[in-house]
Simulated assay, not measured.
Amino acid sequence: METLRPKDAQDLGMSKSSLYRATQSGQYERIARGIYRPADAPAADWDWIEAATRRPDATICLTSALAFHDLTDAIPDALDVAIPRGARIPATEAAINWHLFAKTTFDLGRTEIPIPGSDLHIGLYSPERCIADAFRLRGDLGYELGRDALREWIRRGGKPAELMATAARLPRAKGPILQALEMLT
């Protein structure tokens, strides 16, 4: 089911006020300011929908992406979403931590996945990119996050050469990952 914004209501043959009335009568659910879904739509993650609707280039990163890839036991208290540096950080109602990543490396390890229960897509960083980001941002995220994710990734058969190829393209990632790999292997 498509999310609906008041400015797009005319495409369905309804005015903004008829959309609001339909919401009050229970035909639509309000996800966030200016974002609605049909009430009978399948269950979906509203935080993901809000992030993808507010920024089409939104990409799940850091702890949220590591949790998605099942490489950490940490449960993020907010959805970590990256957007290119210089972009405007949107106002959101959902618990979203917006991170600004360099434009030159923003697409490194990025893929798009469908949001379950929706026809929207959201970006997601690869496990290698997430591990490299955890190491390069270890001062903010904690030193254990990257190390534990790396240990689990290697246990599952991750290839250190692929990780090092990604880390070499990101600032402040290659050295700490090399040290951690030497200690783990």
Rank of each mutant, 00 (worst) to 15 (best):
T3R: 14
L4Y: 09
R5Q: 15
R5E: 15
R5T: 15
D8Y: 14
Q10W: 15
Q10P: 12
D11A: 15
L12K: 13
S15A: 14
S17M: 15
S17E: 15
L19P: 05
Y20L: 15
R21C: 11
R21S: 15
A22G: 15
G26F: 11
Y28G: 05
E29A: 12
R30F: 05
R30V: 01
I31W: 05
A32M: 07
I35W: 10
Y36M: 09
A39W: 09
A39R: 12
D40R: 11
A41I: 08
P42W: 11
A43T: 13
W46F: 10
W48G: 01
I49T: 10
I49F: 07
E50N: 09
E50S: 05
A52M: 04
T53E: 13
T53M: 12
T53K: 04
R55Q: 13
P56N: 11
P56C: 05
D57S: 08
D57P: 00
A58W: 05
C61A: 13
C61Q: 03
C61E: 08
S64L: 02
L66I: 01
L66C: 04
L66S: 03
A67R: 14
F68K: 09
D70N: 13
L71D: 07
L71G: 05
D73H: 12
D73P: 01
D77P: 00
A78I: 01
L79V: 02
V81H: 05
I83M: 07
G86C: 12
A87V: 01
A87I: 00
A91F: 09
A91R: 14
A91Q: 14
T92L: 04
E93W: 06
A94R: 11
A95L: 10
N97A: 12
H99S: 11
K103H: 11
K103W: 08
T104S: 14
T104Y: 07
F106Y: 10
L108P: 02
E112C: 02
E112T: 06
I113Q: 08
P114R: 13
S118K: 04
S118V: 04
S118D: 14
D119C: 11
I122H: 03
L124F: 04
E128V: 00
E128C: 01
C130R: 01
I131C: 01
I131R: 00
A134S: 12
F135K: 01
F135E: 03
R138G: 11
R138A: 12
R138S: 14
G139L: 11
G139T: 12
G142Q: 07
G142V: 08
L145F: 05
A149C: 08
L150Q: 02
L150K: 06
L150D: 03
E152C: 02
I154P: 00
I154S: 08
K159C: 07
P160G: 09
A161F: 06
E162K: 13
L163K: 02
T166D: 03
T166F: 00
T166Q: 04
R169L: 14
R172H: 15
A173K: 05
G175L: 07
P176E: 07
Q179R: 10
Q179C: 01
Q179F: 00
E182L: 08
L184C: 05
T185Q: 10
